[in-house]
Design a binder for these strands. Structure first.
Lengths: 217, 217
DNA sequence: ACTATTTTTTAGGTAAGTCTAAAAAATATA
DNA sequence: TATATTTTTTAGACTTACCTAAAAAATAGT
């Protein structure tokens, strides 16, 4: 059993390691958790005692198979709750993150299976992020931010990157939601802004925005 | 802001004081919280510093208006979540208590208003307990356990008392759910067991059970 | 290669919530 | 009313998760 704080650390480690595939440094984790390196070192010791990570002094942290599966369960809960909040309770997608951060720590396997069923076994959350299934299996699709696409490309928005509320409000306003058709109309060399066609509307967007709109690669 | 533990203490105090109307003793609270009297004394100091209770040494604890309103919000959340679990996710009524104990601490006023709306503004939870409205207003109905009723009485089950899973399973089996018609057929002086008509079935129940079936007084 | 800088760890301390053991106050009993 | 018993509080200690300051290890610069 992990405490709430331990779960949050593990989730952050998992995300920073890009799904458990690379080592995470103490300072990077301190930054991600908005805490101090000394606190991170303490917590790292606890988490490796619980065998969810391996730890080599002055080198970094790696997620174990057990840790990966625990992290994926937390992510599964987070994304199912986000889907519930948007699909069933009518929340806007920029309002769900903080609440889901709380709900993801509710411990009841039965609850999460029932919720999954109630939602119709969704594959992705409202931001387009994949939802791990009950075994922790996650469908990884290579996603590309549209700032890297050539003029003329057309496809569908698969996901959006950041969970910042202001960005999400803006993306929602221009219609850049998962599933919506998108076409690259033009790119400006100078500031890397671009013109896109979305929902039959021409929109100019800055690079800061285009980096956060993802399509299937 | 109250911590999770503080919320649990306050809720227990509120229940033990029967809605804030009488003083609660240290030992009674220790018993209710499955902890020691010394821990209770510590917590009492914190809660009175936060002005949700008043405290007189060696006398007991009283809930303030502020404390009552906070306690009612926790109870509101608990009962709305129980309703959600039963009505929407298909939980049995004996399975919801522990999960609702966790969910009641999620802090998001917007979430709870949306949930209330989604559930259709229910007045009572699956056990027949009244759900406080968004202002903390609660509909109090005088309820009487059927062991105190005379032979011949008929009416409807309004609520069930205990949240013990085994009792609830048994009540469910004999059909003693809120809203169901009930009639007292006979009472046995010796052990205070009784025969009742419920759902057109004759059932013999012990006093331990009949005390937990409540009708409107 | 040796010093300077950065990163990480250790050492020691705080607050919340718990505990046990002992003291103090209130209540019950003779 | 004086003593015994029960209840409550205080005192001191433990754990978790955090902190600051200082030491140790790793990395970078010349």
């Amino acid at each position: 059993m992990l405490s709430l704080t331990e779960e949050n650390y593990l989730k952050a480690i998992y995300h920073l390691s890009e799904g458990g595939s690379k080592a995470v440094l103490t300072n990077a984790l301190a930054e991600a958790m908005s805490t101090k390196a000394a606190s991170v070192t303490d917590m790292i010791k606890k988490l490796s005692a619980k065998e969810v990570i391996t730890y080599e002094k002055y080198y970094g942290v790696n997620v174990t198979a057990k840790g990966k599966s625990e992290a994926l369960m937390v992510i599964r809960k987070h994304r199912l709750w986000e889907t519930f909040l948007v699909d069933k309770l009518g929340f806007a997608w920029d309002e769900v993150h903080e609440v889901a951060e709380q709900l993801e720590h509710i411990s009841s396997p039965r609850l999460i299976e029932k919720l999954d069923e109630f939602l119709g076994y969704p594959k992705v959350d409202p931001h387009g992020d994949p939802i791990p299934d009950s075994k922790g299996k996650i469908k990884v699709q290579p996603l590309i931010p549209i700032d890297q696409l050539p003029v003329g490309f057309h496809g569908k928005v698969a996901a959006v990157k950041d969970s910042d509320s202001n960005l999400l409000k803006y993306l929602d306003k221009i219609g850049a939601r998962p599933g919506i058709k998108i076409k690259v109309l033009g790119k400006e060399e100078y500031d890397e802004s671009m013109e896109i066609l979305i929902n039959d509307h021409r929109v100019f967007i800055s690079k800061a925005v285009s980096q956060n709109i993802l399509v299937v690669g």
